Simulated assay, not measured.
Amino acid sequence: MSILLCPCDSGENLKACCGLYLSGKAYPSTATSLLRSRYSAYATGNLTYLHKTWHPDTRPNLRAQDLVTQWTHLQIIRVKPGLKHSVAEFKALYRDGDQKCEVREISLFKLYRKRWVYLQTCADWP
């Protein structure tokens, strides 16, 4: 039996790491753990989890065909934690055919109904 490593690059196995969140057995207690688990949701195609962790005011109408990207690596660059808002800058690598590509983003997370949710992408570091 092989152990599947978590896509978030924590080095932990998926079940013990983001799998707890993706399965609904737990909910991330920090914006950083939410960022990691959302990356894992993209990597595993977990549309339900992405919908649940997106602020309702900014949530797009994602479909399964929007989640076909082959994500390969997550690097969290910096995090500015807060009590009600948190900001994180990260780089996510993916494959497009034989080409290696990356997305770099600054994301804003908000405490909403006592849970962290993704709100939006920021243009600049605050």
Score class of each variant (00 low, 15 high):
106 I>V: 15
97 G>K: 11
95 R>V: 13
20 L>G: 00
52 K>F: 01
81 P>R: 02
56 P>G: 09
23 S>R: 04
99 Q>I: 14
62 L>I: 10
20 L>D: 00
90 F>G: 03
20 L>V: 01
39 Y>V: 04
23 S>D: 03
45 G>S: 08
85 H>C: 04
66 D>R: 06
106 I>Q: 10
21 Y>S: 00
90 F>L: 13
25 K>I: 00
60 P>M: 07
68 V>Y: 10
41 A>M: 01
112 Y>S: 05
117 V>A: 04
50 L>Y: 02
12 E>H: 13
95 R>Y: 09
92 A>V: 08
88 A>P: 05
65 Q>L: 10
101 C>Y: 01
122 C>Q: 15
27 Y>T: 10
23 S>W: 00
103 V>C: 02
53 T>M: 00
116 W>F: 02
3 I>V: 15
76 I>E: 06
95 R>M: 14
12 E>C: 07
100 K>R: 15
100 K>W: 06
90 F>C: 08
86 S>D: 09
76 I>W: 07
2 S>R: 13
62 L>V: 12
47 L>K: 09
92 A>D: 08
8 C>L: 11
37 S>Q: 09
33 S>Y: 05
68 V>A: 12
4 L>Y: 09
81 P>H: 09
85 H>E: 14
43 A>S: 12
93 L>T: 14
96 D>A: 13
71 W>F: 14
6 C>D: 02
63 R>H: 13
87 V>G: 09
44 T>W: 00
96 D>V: 08
100 K>F: 08
6 C>L: 05
13 N>I: 04
41 A>W: 00
